[in-house]
Amino acid sequence: MKTEETQEITCKVNGERITRLVPVRQHLVDFLRMDLQLTGSHIGCEHGVCGACSVRVDGKVVRGCLMLAVQADGQNIVTIEGLTDSGEVADLQAEFVERNALQCGYCTPGQLMTAAELLAEGEISTREEIRTFMSGNYCRCTGYHAIVDAIETTMKRREEASRAPRPAKGKA
């Protein structure tokens, strides 16, 4: 029987620098969930189809089950916990709650991680473009309509906010 090979990794997770010894065959989401107790990233299919495990690695959303923890060495990882704490998607999360864009909630962290990347582009997308962008994240409850509504509304609100005249700064 082959022995379990391990390697030490150092990476940043939600802004915190951490060093751990990991089995080389462990994927990133198992590492986040089991070793760091960051259980917000979910495991659905474990072969890259469902999107429940989506996390941000060096600024880009990736499948957490299709990357090895050992590959996270030197990388900057943001999970749904970090994304929530930063307030980056507070408006999107409020829109999800507003219209029940989730039922069981299992896919929701992944939906938010992917939607955050689309919203970060700062452009207005059509509903069709939103659907295409989100096509890698399965939801078995909502039928997607409310999810697309929440993303579309957030996108439009951000656009309006960016166009609104800014209140004058300073003492005047």
Partner: peptide, 12 residues
Amino acid sequence: IPHVAHVAVRNR
């Protein structure tokens, strides 16, 4: 290229 998988897969 837009037909290649989904955004999270294309990123990696």
